[in-house]
Design a protein around this nucleic acid. Structure first.
Ligand code: MN
Ligand code: MN
Ligand code: ZN
Ligand code: ZN
Lengths: 138, 138
DNA sequence: ACCTAATTTATAATCATTCTAAACTGTAAG
DNA sequence: CTTACAGTTTAGAATGATTATAAATTAGGT
């Protein structure tokens, strides 16, 4: 077993999932990458089923992605009601969104000045701060 | 005809819509307010049909809200894939989102330090910058 | 090898949104 | 005041993403 595969098995076990062949294939599609991967469930499903002889059902893709999201191995990114994205970059960061091709681009935390709020809501604490920069051709 | 009503008729005509009784009722629900109104289509539909003798169809609510969005009298706010909100405050501003009750709260532009990006995407210009601050009970 | 709970899968159900087409209405010309 | 007709409303159908279901299959322990 490769180093990568045992890493996938760890991720799966941490997510309370048994390492099945379908889930390993999903891990390969998600995590065997040098760059951040931004995807919709449909993107991932198409990617998986185009290359594979043994298809993986859509339900399994949904289940696995959501389990990874819940265990923190994937981040969910809300762009608009038409596009529900996930992100393999789970560090704190923001995004550019190019509406011409529906592409997400990472904006590293150090590429943006710290967001400073002058207003607070009494009795509430901040859970997250997300910045979305929509871009278009010049 | 009241001042308010003629204002609604102006909004409707600017949105290329004839002032029908259904649309005037929708305007009253949306714009006859002192505070910003954040709502989902379902919220608005329930509000309208609970108080009214003559019901308005869901299709008309969708059509009118989208026409107002397209003409700039309403802003669409993307929180997550489950909640598609609209906002009667069309000025540039950001939001708190309280996940315990799904409530949006305006964060005035002057209540947040200007967002400064140190990264740009060549050939692209910025279309919008949106900040969403999720909050939870302390 | 056997047992059992977990998993996969096809399919159905759900839900928001959009589409459709028939009935209705506002407007303006005759 | 009629009439004509484009614009509007509406119920219901269609769509598409997501979630639920339940039967068949599989993984992992004994
Ligand atoms: Mn895509
Ligand atoms: Mn609400
Ligand atoms: Zn990212
Ligand atoms: Zn607002």
């Amino acid at each position: 077993m490769t180093q990568k595969t045992s890493n996938y098995i760890t991720k799966l076990r941490n997510s309370k999932l048994r390492p099945t062949k379908q889930r390993i294939k999903i891990c390969e599609a998600l995590f065997d990458r040098s760059e951040t991967f931004h995807f919709t469930i449909r993107d991932l499903y198409n990617l998986l089923t185009n290359n594979l002889v043994h298809k993986i059902s859509l339900a399994t893709v949904y289940n696995t992605v959501h389990a990874f999201k819940n265990s923190g191995y994937l981040k969910q990114i809300n762009i608009d009601s038409n596009n529900n994205y996930f992100d393999t970059n789970t560090s704190h960061h923001h995004h550019f969104f190019d509406e011409t091709n529906n592409e997400l681009i990472d904006l590293k935390n150090e590429d943006i000045k710290k967001i400073e709020l002058k207003k607070i809501i009494p009795g509430k604490k901040i859970k997250s701060v997300e910045v979305l920069v929509k871009i278009e051709p010049e």
